[in-house]
């Protein structure tokens, strides 16, 4: 019973703070509302006994939102919300589509006869997960590692101001790089 109450409070708060993300004026407030939504959704995951994954979501999201606040302040014209503004397009259409999606999903949730299982969860789900990703699910872990590495390379390439094509020309045939300041000694 206590679990159900905690779940209800956290679920309602998660959805409410998720809605607040797109309602508040300030970008910084929107980011912290999103952080609150993530923390509230981590609680139901913890209630399921997934202590490692729940804590992972909380820690990752706290870090991610701190970075996101910085980007918000960098790129948004109104980071502090000192004057009201709306930056939306086709609000009515988006609202209709999302309400329709929720109704369809909720109908599916309530109408589909979901399979039930009597299998008890393992005593330590984290141990089971660790054994899985180091055992029979190792391919998943290797792919995740490759994707994360590719992401690091690609995001640095995208965020770099001057790449090798800017320095050596489109066909990379320029003998000396076209730099604003020449490198090396004797400048």
């Amino acid at each position: 019973m206590a679990e159900l109450v905690v779940f209800a409070i956290c679920a309602a708060s998660a959805v409410a703070s998720g809605i607040a993300v797109f309602v508040v004026d300030s970008m910084a407030r929107a980011t912290f509302a999103l952080l609150a939504s993530f923390v509230f959704t981590a609680v139901p995951i913890l209630l399921l006994g997934l202590s490692y994954l729940g804590v992972l979501v909380v820690l990752m999201m706290v870090m991610e939102m701190m970075i996101m606040v910085i980007f918000m302040v960098m790129y948004m014209m109104n980071p502090a919300g000192l004057m009201p503004m709306t930056m939306v397009h086709n609000k009515a259409g988006a609202l209709a589509i999302s309400v329709g999606t929720f109704v369809a999903l909720a109908a599916g949730v309530l109408l589909v006869p979901w399979p039930t299982s009597t299998a008890a969860p393992p005593a330590d789900p984290t141990l089971a997960l660790g054994e899985a990703i180091m055992g029979e699910k190792m391919l998943v872990m290797m792919l995740v590692g490759m994707v994360l590495f590719a992401t690091m390379v690609a995001s640095i390439v995208l965020a770099t101001h001057r790449g090798r094509y800017a320095r050596y020309g489109d066909d990379l045939r320029r003998k000396h790089p076209d730099d604003p300041i020449r490198g090396g000694v004797g400048r």
Binding site: A14, V15, G18, T101, F102, A106
Partner: peptide
């Protein structure tokens, strides 16, 4: 809960 978060 998941459907509501997804819709938002």
């Amino acid at each position: 809960l998941a459907a509501a978060l997804f819709a938002v």
